[in-house]
Amino acid sequence: MRPILLKGHERSLTQVKFNREGDLIFSCAKDSVASVWYAINGERLGTFEGHQGTIWSIDVDRFTQYAVTGSADFSIKLWDVQTGQNVYTWKTKTPVRRVEFSPSGDKFLAVLDGVMGYPGSVTVYDLPRSNETQKLSQEPSAEPAFDILTHEGFEIASVAAWSFQDRFIAVGHKDGRVSKYDGATGEFIDALELHTQSVSDIQFSPDGTYFITSSRDSDAKLVDIETLEVLKTYETDCPLNSACITPIKQFVILGGGQDAKDVTTTSSREGKFEARLYHKIFQDEIGRVKGHFGPLNCVAVSPQGTSYASGGEDGFVRLHHFDKSYFDFKYDVEKSAEAQKHMQGLESSA
């Protein structure tokens, strides 16, 4: 795999995202300018300029109509992807750690930090859209639809994500817990103590029925959203910052590395600054992708499963288009299971 280096950010990356078609990459960094890139060749399409501080999070809706960014400057900004114009800005009480559009695109969530006396929350905003053009039909409300204040006894939320049909919100907490809320009302449903340290990322499967969490405790876990049952655990030897589930192939990609504050004292090899591929079902490590010379802060895979991008503390986004050997790689068990399936198909068609 030959990576494409996306050079444009001046400081460490905080999040990368693919749009639904997988042809654009959205990235944000601590340098307060978000970028959009062509996934095919890594050329920069444009930037979203306007934030005053670190952009912690970025997301794009399913129509690639709007992008949303959450920043340390106490604001959330909505951008028109086509023009790069700032469409709307929400003021928040505390820095915004994470933003994500719901699958329908009618609302988005924001994870607000718990500082300055604010308990921290997952806040949901509505986006009134026209059904035909998908554009805003009216000025959005400055007030949130609802707030999910940090549950009593829990530490504040670090990450959050939407399930299928906007139905649930899964929230990862600083204490390693994962809690589940109703996506329409914000009602608390369930929680489980999943990790021993802060949950650093939550990403759902393409269909939004199960999700992967990564944690500073070096584990990544696959959890069913309906039952909150832990399906798989992937153990690594370094703190994890991000994890994603690959479509087509039954893999997961984990990214992490030594803490940013220790980076200067370790060489890149010891820092374990590699993306790790694990088999989603067998939980074995399959391979690693080297390249970054700082920890990986975020990983994302295209919804088509043909490429993935990682954003590092080193300020680069590395975009990888999977090659043939990636798709050809199969365990004997998988090969024979496929073969059997193929045979059965033949028999039933005959």
């Binding site: 042809d23 299928f164 393409p206 269909d207 029925t209 919804p303 088509q304």
Partner: peptide, 15 residues
């Protein structure tokens, strides 16, 4: 429960 069809990846037919 939700009348929802699950899937494993998103195809882009529009490309």
């Amino acid at each position: 429960e939700y009348n929802y069809e699950i899937f494993d990846f998103i195809e882009t037919s529009a490309v």
